[in-house]
Amino acid sequence: MLKVENLSTNFYTFRGVVKAVENVSLELEKEEILGIAGESGSGKSTLAWSIMGMVPPPGRIVSGRVVIDGVEVTRLSDAELRRKVLWKKVSMVFQGAINALNPVYTIGYQLAEPFIYHAGLSKKEALEKAKSLLPMVGLSEEIAKRYPHELSGGMKQRVVIAMALALEPTVVIADEPTTALDVVVQAQILNLLKKLKREKKLSFILITHDLSVIAEMSDKIAIMYGGQIVEYGTSEQIFNDPLHPYTRALLRSIPRLRGPIDKLQYIPGEPPDLISPPRGCRFHPRCSDVMDVCRDREPVLVDTGDKHLVRCWLYDESWKRRG
């Protein structure tokens, strides 16, 4: 369905080269949700933009490939990308997209745009199609005549999701789709995404900093830190048997609604500066299990069995053998 291999994206700034995404590989099957979690600045949004082939300047994909439905996206020109891939194979629900709805056009008109520009329908046909999208996301067709300011935040988020689904893409990337919403509305939107996944056999990449939302939705999870994937596995592997010290610390920092109230843990220190990341493992200055080798050599992702990958010297004995 979707395959990302050794993808790296850099930003060329005046201060230096920011390695925002480095050597990321992942796979997404049909009707599967992959959750990407990480702190702000961990590269999760840049990864999404890279998969879409839409990295904003001064950023550039420097290596690796992205294959969607057999098409190698990373080799297409911008024009080909727009014609063949965007909306039709992969679409995105952007962070804060509800604020990007144009206030002077009706919802129906904005929903019709992809049909006009990407599917070549006439305006009238496109408007009809647009209307038919609304019930799918739990809105009435009458909403098509309304303007964005007449809708609540939850309704706007539903419109944005309908827009992403308009041309029936195989993969939808959702970047913080519920972050600005209240919990009740968030629960409704998450339920909607679950329903769409089942009914339309959709695959999602869900990007969020909220591990509870990730748990609520994802089949597989990638934990990102400093532009790299540090742990990758099924939802059960990550939540029930976290391996990387970063993942463990992150899980201990989540306040919970039930059970005993243990002291909340935090990760001391600051996220790494990606222009000059720390030598060795990027997490070592904040890590509670740091060893000498971590300060010196960068760990690689190793499979600890059952496709549970982790980037940490604790689980990679090779440094001992080589001395």
Binding site: V183, S212, A215, S218, I238, F239
Partner: peptide
């Protein structure tokens, strides 16, 4: 309270 997601993978 019912609406708040919890870090439990069974919820998916």
């Amino acid at each position: 309270v019912a609406a708040i997601p919890e870090p439990d993978p069974r919820n998916r």
